[in-house]
Structure formats: C-alpha cells, structure tokens
C-alpha cells in the first residue's frame, strides 16, 4: 500500500476523530431515579416559621456552606401600620442563631425564610456564558462547579439574591434543593430540621404529593411574580411588604 504524505496528513486527523467518537460511548445513566418523573419545588408556610434558624444551620452542615454565605436564610420583617412600603428587615448572620427578642409594640412581625426559588425560567441560568448553570430536567437550578468560571454574572442576575461566589472554590454556589438527598428519596436538610413544618419539599409531578391539595385550597404567592421567573418556592401567608 502506497500512501503519499498528503494522504497521510488527511487520514490521520480523520482517524483521530473517528476514534474519539468510538471511545466516547454512551452517557452515564442514573438507574434508580427518573428525572422525567419529578418537578421539584418548595412550599414555605410563613405563619408557621418561628425564626429559630434551624434551617440555616442544617443547610450549612449538610452542604458545607462557608461562614458568612447562605444558601438559605431567614429574614424578620417589622411592618408598622402606616409604613407598609418601608418595612424594617433584619437577618443577623442569616438568622442562623435566631433573632433578638422583639418587644411588643406597634405593627406586626413575621419571619420569611428565603432560598433559591428554583425558577423554571430562571434569569441566572440564561446569563451563564459557558453553560455551567442550568435547570435540570426535574426542575432544580444547579451549578456545574467544575465548569464554572466564577465570573459572577449569575450572582448579579438572580433577582432574589440567592447566589454567591464561594470564597475558596472561587465559583458560584447556591441551593441545590439538596439534590443529593431528594434523588435518594429524602427531604431537604432544611425541611428535615424545621421543627414546625414551615418548609415542605414539593414534587409537583407527583399526583399524591400533598402540595396539590394545599395549592388548591390556600392562597399562595411567589416572590417577585412581576419578573415572570417561574419561581417554584410557593409562599403561604406572604405579606405584601416582602421584597
């Protein structure tokens, strides 16, 4: 067989391409968990929240969240009768160690647990220049931290302030809805640790999930509905002063 130098130059890369695709094989599959059968969200029952900070501590433990950053946090609102649009909001250390005692005076107090809303049309995933953050087929907004550049566009794009740049990994970090737990049939760490049931993991594709009965019979709200993010953190008892 007589192959000229020119033919060799053409054949070699072609063979390399072919071998690369032979080597690639089939993508890995997850045997016990079918992503197409789930669509995850969260129900947050504000009248049940007592501001103990269990959820914040549990999230930090479960997910190794660095001090000073939060995947979930709790805010305390104080709204006086006439200052509806300018509530006083505090969240000392994310509410991790609870809140100072509130003295009985004018207006109302309530706690608002905050976390990633796992938006179906999330602004944060749309701005990622490298495809490092995405909405998974089961509706969870995740970050591929091996692919993230740490540019911080998504941190700016999230209208709910739910993302941060990890101080040591130098990549974006956020709530994964405890994806490593919910895919094993467990609930999230924050739901597991909440003593009053103020948080409830919801599988919107599961017809037996109690979320459906709750959504049918209770008035619920999402944060910043005007932004049309398709937020899936449903708040019951949300006050109009909450931003």
């Amino acid at each position: 067989m007589n192959i000229s130098r020119r033919h060799m130059l053409i054949l070699l890369p072609a063979a390399a391409v072919a071998w690369k695709y032979v080597e690639a094989g089939e993508p890995e599959a997850s045997p016990n968990y079918q992503m197409s059968e789930h669509w995850w969200g969260m129900l947050i029952n504000i009248p049940k929240c007592i501001g103990c900070g269990n959820c914040v501590r549990a999230c930090q433990t479960e997910n190794d969240v660095p001090d000073g950053n939060f995947r979930t946090w709790v805010e305390r609102y104080h709204v006086t009768d006439t200052e509806m649009t300018t509530p006083e909001v505090i969240s000392p250390d994310g509410g991790k160690e609870g809140f100072p005692v509130a003295q009985e005076d004018a207006g109302k107090y309530f706690f608002v647990p905050k976390m990633c809303n796992h938006c179906a049309d999330s602004p944060c995933t749309q701005v990622c220049p490298v495809g490092a953050t995405f909405v998974s087929p089961d509706g969870v907004v995740l970050i591929d931290q091996t692919y993230c550049l740490g540019c911080g566009y998504c941190v700016q794009a999230c209208p709910y302030g739910c993302r941060y740049l990890h101080p040591t990994k130098h990549v974006a970090d956020k709530c994964t809805l405890c994806y490593h737990r919910i895919t094993k049939g467990l609930t999230t760490a924050c739901c597991e640790a909440c003593p009053t049931g103020a948080r409830q993991l919801a599988d919107l594709k599961n017809p037996n999930d109690p979320i459906h009965e709750f959504l049918k019979t209770h008035p619920v709200e999402v944060l910043k509905p005007q932004m049309a993010t398709g937020a899936k953190a449903y708040y019951y008892g949300l006050d109009g002063s909450v931003r």
């Binding site: 890995e28 495809g131 591929d144 692919y147 994806y179 490593h180 895919t183 467990l186 760490a189």
Partner: peptide, 17 residues
C-alpha cells in the same frame, strides 16, 4: 447547553442528615 454528567455528580454528594 450544559454537561449532563454534572447532575449525577451533584447527586453523589454525601448525605449528613
């Protein structure tokens, strides 16, 4: 437009609770 294997990797994180 993302790495599909990332989903499986995130699901492999250790459970503490």
């Amino acid at each position: 437009h993302y790495r599909g294997a990332a989903i499986g990797e995130i699901a492999q994180h250790p459970v503490k609770f």
